[in-house]
Design a protein around this nucleic acid. Structure first.
Lengths: 135, 135
DNA sequence: ATCGGTGCAAAGGTTTTGCAGGCGG
DNA sequence: CCGCCTGCAAAACCTTTGCACCGAT
């Protein structure tokens, strides 16, 4: 996509700002709700269009954790994600350089060229672990 | 889900058989088309319901590679998947035990309990690599 | 002034579901 | 027989898109 000819409109700026404010990995609709508090007239379509452009141009990450909807992330530093199977929350997992290891092991296979790896974890988050111990 | 009280109906059997026939990782709709050749009256809803039950009960795998639709896999032996960014095909990648390594490294983090890892690759398949060299 | 962006609403694609009848164990 | 399963169709969701107007550069 052509990232040169994009304009930083008010709407796009607010979408990006709201996304960077949170670590909750909001869906487009969730972000729409929080952006709407500042821009009551913004449309859901605009939020989708801006999230698409922002993620295509490297200013945000688009995540798909198999929930049937996409999530977005304003944190660009390398990290992984864990989806809590109890509460559904998506939390950040500190980066350890496993991508490279995987790719290195996989490179030997030779029948295809690997350009990227998606890694995400399933598990139980700290809050839900605590709840389990209480009961 | 309760896998004890499920019945092996004709439709369910054919869905599973057709899924096991292929390594193409069909979507629900693609599988519907191939099942329909044997059961012309089956409905798409039935295919969806059976794929849900079969994957919940460990007789098939449900894949989500971020395409906006799910794929299904009748091969239960451990293996990974690579989605070709050129042609969109999903091909099998032989298993090397990286899951365990990742989990081991991640276990030390302690703030959450990791129960599973999803790993999938992006790249260029053998066919598309061959085409690139021709041109 | 240009041309990308916006709001609105409709449409698109995938998946789920309510219902009445059918059939497997 | 009981109760899971089916076909059908509508609905539920998430996301994209056509259009006319607006506004960033």
């Amino acid at each position: 996509m052509d990232c040169e000819n994009t304009r930083m409109t008010h709407q796009r700026r607010v979408v990006l700002e709201e996304l960077k404010k949170t670590t909750a990995h909001p869906t487009a609709d969730e972000l729409y709700e929080s952006v709407r508090k500042r821009l009551p007239n913004i449309s859901l379509g605009t939020v989708y269009r801006n999230l698409e452009i922002l993620s295509a141009c490297g200013q945000a990450l688009k995540l798909d954790l198999g929930e049937g909807k996409k999530r977005f992330d304003g944190t660009l530093d390398p990290h992984y994600h864990l989806r809590c199977v109890k509460c559904g929350r998506v939390i950040d997992v500190p980066y350890v350089p496993i991508d490279k290891k995987i790719e290195k092991q996989m490179k030997d296979l030779g029948e295809f060229k690997i350009t990227g790896v998606q890694v995400h974890f399933e598990g139980i988050c700290a809050d839900c672990l605590a709840k389990e111990q209480t009961h």
